[in-house]
Design a protein around this nucleic acid. Structure first.
Lengths: 197, 197
DNA sequence: TCACTTCCATACCGAGGGTATGTAACTTTT
DNA sequence: AAAAGTTACATACCCTCGGTATGGAAGTGA
């Protein structure tokens, strides 16, 4: 190993650790993944992991953020291809649902995330990523003075549920259009008068 | 202790165990709750717990089912007071959201449930309780030929999210009407033509 | 009453999260 | 450039806790 600066060494090992953790957490789930296994996959020992991360949850948090960055980038690039706000919103929802077909994403973001980090912490992170993109899209198509924050949060919940539902399907790709249609139906309520109290 | 039959002994201890587990799982979460602590609260030792339950997850599953039974009973009795299907549906949603103000319910059903039991198992249980009630309500107000199963599942996701959102609020009771209004807006989409594809 | 089963306690094992300590690699100071 | 100090990582260890094995007490069927 040639001479490297400390920052380079540190960055390299943390990157390898997060990558390994993302793989194992996504495949086996948080509880069934040991720090030792992560370190081994990353090519080092437990000590290195505990030098860079306070504990298991902190490492998981880093993986969670990484997942968020990945999906929000995908959402933005997908939505950017549609000039019409409505089309962009629908396109974004479809992209999200497609992303839910990845088992690792589901395990880390939808299943373990809230249990490990807590609901508040999870949504706090997502407020800067997925939820932020969705809220922008919702705001663009909302006419009346309702709260886009609350509204997009509910839509988000429905989309997460749809993602899990889709993944459970025997033919996810084939059922995707039907689920997207139902999601679109929910979205269509955004441009409506309130129903009844 | 006077003479008791085996079934009575067994039922009494399992009941005490489940009650203690419900309390601790709800307050501290699944990971932070030890079987020993549950047994102590229930007034016995770990051995008793492992005699009646295969493992920690099995005990949790029993608690989860108990929570489901409690809320579905509340939903049914609330909805039964409204003759109009629309009013019954809205009333049910409001009851669900009020139930989400209980931290134990949130922790067990919304946070730990999916991570511990898996999404499929959780929804399988809920299919006989919460989800079943909701699906009936949705079916009653749905005119067109869309799939009420998928539809109610998405609504369910939105409601769970709304419940967590509400709980996070500084003034849950005061914000409840606003969230119910937003939920009603989503529900109103059920009686609509599909928007766009 | 005597075998048999069920219930529960006690004692123990092993995995794994976390810590303490040592050593090698880099950085700063003089 | 060499010593002093700091950072990066490995090794060894502790301790909690899920799960098991074993033993005895309470109940059941003959």
């Amino acid at each position: 190993m040639i001479r490297r600066t400390q920052a380079e060494r540190s960055d390299a090992t943390t990157s390898k650790l997060v990558a390994a953790a993302q793989q194992l957490f996504g495949r086996d789930g948080y509880a069934a993944t040991t720090i030792g296994a992560v370190a081994t996959v990353a090519g080092m020992t437990k000590g290195a992991a505990y030098h860079h991360f306070l504990n298991k949850a902190t490492l998981f948090r880093e993986v969670f953020i990484r997942e968020q960055e990945e999906i929000s980038a995908a959402l933005l690039s997908a939505a950017a291809q549609e000039p019409d706000p409505w089309a962009a919103l629908l396109r974004g929802c479809q992209t999200f649902l497609e992303h839910c077909l990845d088992p690792g994403f589901r395990q880390i973001v939808l299943l373990d995330g809230p249990a490990v980090l807590g609901w508040e912490a999870v949504r706090e992170i997502q407020r800067d990523h997925t939820l932020r993109v969705l809220t922008e899209g919702v705001r663009a198509v909302t006419a009346d003075g309702g709260d886009p924050g609350i509204r997009s949060q509910l839509i988000f919940g429905a989309l997460c549920e749809a993602g899990m539902l889709l993944a459970r399907s025997g033919d996810p790709r084939g059922d995707l259009p039907a689920v997207v249609t139902e999601a679109a139906r929910l979205l269509s309520s955004l441009s409506l008068e309130p129903h009844r109290t």
